[in-house]
Nucleic acid binder design. Structure first.
Length: 573
RNA sequence: GAUUCCGUAGCUCAGCCGGUAGAGCAUAACACUUUUAAUGUUGGGGUCCUGGGUUCGAAUCCCAGCGGGAUCACCA
């Protein structure tokens, strides 16, 4: 059993048994009342020392400095770290010094949770510390934590930095790199600030289906699944837009939803297969109104996190105070290329692309060509929040046609730091127009565009009953959080980013080995030698296995009987 | 998908021209009653990612694979 564990893990399991042997439950059931946090003590003790003469504190042991009959340890709680001072004769006032000499010095390890009671004082070196009078074990840790050391200047030594391990074992990451917790605290603030703002306006948070029979509302490849009882295919939603519009039809004036969306596409530092979006729909409004709403909302978010509207992002300082610059798609292209493309036909656009050195192919229509020019020449320049408005109709099947400009739709996207973070329309509520636009998408799908939108007859039926004029907005929450916390990868703002599965070695059971004649006590040795399945063992060289068994027996100082060579040979028959 | 770098102790990393596997921290033992990257002394700990190849000999060189990072492309 213990073979296969590292030496340090074995030692900790032995310490666990020893604790039990001397009558200490390493995983007690009782609650442990806490009267102070590390942040509270460090902040308020200097001013009001009398308030901290009898504190109860719990945390994880993060370092120990043992000096004979006195010791220092650092305990980490959810708010930070504080030093505790333990003196043998204080925690063991009687003759029995077991709690200090054995339990604290030998049986506790870095990573264990303990509770302490005592008084706060300042050490000779000036550090606020808890002088411990009582100590209780709250939870024993069986795996050693990586040790990250910091000196007084904040320099980090032996950091736990491997991104793979940090993302796969976020619990370890946030334990030893607690500075990253702030990102997630801020993520929560972003969402809560938006939610409070929406609620103040009288809009309602709703939930719509994640399992959808038709995936609509965006252009993306979905995850497919299947419902057994109904025996029907279902899709994880790529967007919730069409359901939220049904609720506007139903008579709600403002509905919003924060939720996970799922897109079966590439993964990189700005894309995760599941991501969080916020969509909001408000009746009787248009996209011009929505621009002001977004400005107010983002201003509040920036203030909540930074106390100012100015947010550092990379090498820039971005100011989220509105109003933001507004450029139509054509104006933005004119601004950054010096050329007015608004009256160009497809051939002229194609020629202009070639002139700019943009690759084009024959399948690209007018809308796509304009989008290429925008992406190549404009997007990266939009550092401060900028609205790009009035998109070509071809790429936007759910937005209303522009009130005055032919061939365009009433849509804006908000760009910040060269990236899109929000998308909004005056929503299309003309059911006949909507049907035609979706039919155009079907044609695209017929030509093999896997991302074209599907026809949703129930949604069209809802529109036919009548939807009031409505403005809708979608914001990518992960990307907004990246901006607000100055992170350049989406993995840093997700607790558990999607990863490739861990390489999992197959393990045969002990019985499998015993069945081919391996004595039970030798099974762990076989495992230790790297044979995890019977097949792997049989693929080995019998003579080498026999020799290695002897070697392992000696190396691990095992006092078990060596199997006869004939027996070993029989394992392979 | 392309390019490129990386994979060695629990963690962070050295390891030169191919010749018995190294350091710091962690860990174990001893000492030490205000330390703080505690200190001093002495130990233990390795599938050098996997599989092939070259070689008397491979952590090292070659090939393939797996995993990860970065950059680029694609993708709302």
């Amino acid at each position: 059993m213990s073979i296969g564990l590292s030496e340090q893990e074995i030692l900790r399991r032995e310490a666990l048994q020893e604790l039990r042997r001397i009558g200490i439950n390493p995983y007690p059931a009782e609650a442990f009342d806490i009267t102070a946090t590390s942040e509270d003590i460090l902040k308020n003790f200097p001013a009001t020392p009398d308030a901290y003469q009898n504190v109860s504190f719990a945390g994880r042991i993060m370092s120990r400095r043992i000096m004979g009959s006195a010791s220092f340890a650092e305990l980490q709680d959810s708010t930070g770290r504080i030093q505790v001072y333990l003196k043998r004769d204080d925690i063991c006032p009687s003759e029995d010094k077991t709690l200090y000499n054995t339990v604290f010095k030998k049986l506790l390890d870095i990573g264990d949770f303990i509770g302490v009671k005592g008084y706060v004082f300042t050490t000779q070196t000036g550090e606020t510390s808890i002088h411990v009078r009582e100590l209780i074990i709250l939870s024993k840790s069986l795996k050693p934590l990586p040790i990250v050391k910091r000196d007084d200047d904040g320099n980090v030594y032996d950091g736990f930095t491997d991104p793979e391990l940090r993302y796969r074992q976020r619990y370890v990451d946030l334990t030893v790199n607690p500075q990253f917790k702030q990102i997630f605290i801020n993520r929560s603030k972003v969402i809560n600030t938006m939610r409070s703002y929406f609620d103040e306006q009288g809009w309602m948070e709703v939930e719509t289906p994640i399992l959808q029979p038709v995936h609509g509302g965006a252009a993306a490849r979905p995850f497919n699944t299947h419902h057994n009882t109904l025996d029907m295919p279902l899709y994880l939603r790529i967007a919730n837009e069409l359901y939220l519009k049904r609720l506007i039809v139903a008579g709600f004036d403002g509905v919003y939803e924060f939720g996970k969306m799922f897109r079966n596409e590439g993964m990189d530092r700005t894309h995760n297969p599941e991501f969080t979006s916020m969509e909001i729909y408000v009746a009787y409004k248009d996209y011009v109104w929505m621009m002001e709403m977004v400005e107010q909302c983002l201003e509040k978010v920036a203030l909540a996190i930074h106390g100012t509207t100015k947010v550092p992002v990379g090498s820039y300082e971005i100011d989220f105070a509105g109003p933001y610059e507004r450029l139509s798609m054509y104006e933005s292209i004119q601004k950054y290329t010096g050329t007015d493309v608004s009256n160009m036909d497809e051939a002229a656009l194609r020629q202009f692309c070639q002139q700019l050195g943009i690759e084009v192919d024959a399948s690209m229509g007018k809308g796509k060509l304009i989008d290429e020019i925008f992406g190549e020449k404009v997007e990266a320049n939009l550092i401060q929040p900028t609205y790009i408005t009035d998109y070509p109709i071809e790429m936007t099947p759910l937005a209303k046609k522009h009130r005055s400009k032919e061939g365009l739709v009433e849509r804006f996207e908000l760009f910040v730091n060269g990236k899109e973070i929000a998308n909004a329309y005056s929503e299309l509520n003309d059911p006949i127009d909507q049907r035609e636009r979706l039919e155009d998408q079907l044609l695209l799908a017929g030509r093999g565009d896997e991302e074209a939108m599907a026809m949703d007859e129930d949604f069209l039926r809802a529109l036919e009953y009548g939807m009031p004029p409505t403005s809708g907005l979608g914001i990518g929450i992960d990307r907004l959080v990246m901006l607000m916390t100055n992170q350049s990868t989406i993995q840093e703002v997700l607790f558990f980013p999607q990863m490739r599965p861990e390489k999992k070695a197959k393990f045969a059971t002990a019985e499998d080995f015993i069945n081919i004649g391996v004595p039970a006590q030798w099974v762990p040795v076989i495992n230790k030698m790297g044979f995890n399945t019977v097949e792997e063992l049989k693929a080995g060289n019998p003579n080498k296995v026999f020799n290695d068994l002897g070697g392992m027996r000696k190396k691990m100082k095992l006092e078990i009987t060596m199997p006869a060579k004939e027996d070993v040979m029989n394992w392979f028959s």
